[in-house]
């Protein structure tokens, strides 16, 4: 996993550098430093440092005593998955209903066998957020396809 992360950064660095060298001018028409000056330097340094870090990573001694998958990786994937589903549902059913459902489902998995507690949190937290954001701060909350009746 670690090396994949480096490969992703390397790919991003190469693409960033490519655009800097091909699409962005080093100097302006008047001879001043152009929009490509800074990105070119950053892009080259990004690629150099990623390769340097990767070469250290690929040495056999680097892998000794280190495990890529450890801790509670499954739980992290679970909460990330719930998070993504929550964000995608915001535009469909609206901020407050999506929050109620997200909290109830997530808590049902993380905080098992406490139905009443989970239900109360899933209702009271969105209610408090609605009052704070919508009524007190006049801040926007995502609206779904059907707006809230209140």
């Amino acid at each position: 996993m670690r090396i994949i992360f480096f490969v992703v950064i390397l790919a991003a660095g190469l693409m960033y550098s490519y655009v800097a060298f091909t699409n962005l001018d080093f100097l302006t028409m008047t001879g001043r430093l152009g929009p490509g000056f800074f990105p070119r330097g950053i892009g080259v340094l990004m690629v150099v440092f990623t390769l340097w870090s990767m070469s250290a990573e690929l040495r056999p001694s680097a892998a000794e005593g280190r495990s890529d998958v450890g801790g509670y990786a499954g739980q992290v994937a679970l909460i990330m998955g719930f998070g993504v589903a929550y964000v995608l549902s915001l535009g469909l059913i609206g901020g407050i209903p999506a929050t109620v459902i997200f909290l109830f489902v997530t808590l049902s998995v993380l905080n098992r066998n406490r139905l009443l507690q989970n239900g109360l949190v899933a209702l009271l937290v969105p209610a408090a957020i609605y009052v704070l954001f919508d009524r007190l701060l006049n801040a926007a909350i995502p609206e779904g396809v059907l707006p809230l009746p209140f």
Binding site: F82, Y86, N111, V125, I129, I141
Partner: peptide, 19 residues
């Protein structure tokens, strides 16, 4: 417990960013 706080923090991060 953190298992209850964490989903609430995630909601605040999301709605705070949207606002």
């Amino acid at each position: 417990p953190y298992r209850i706080l964490a989903p609430i923090v995630l909601v605040i991060c999301t709605l705070g960013t949207f606002s």
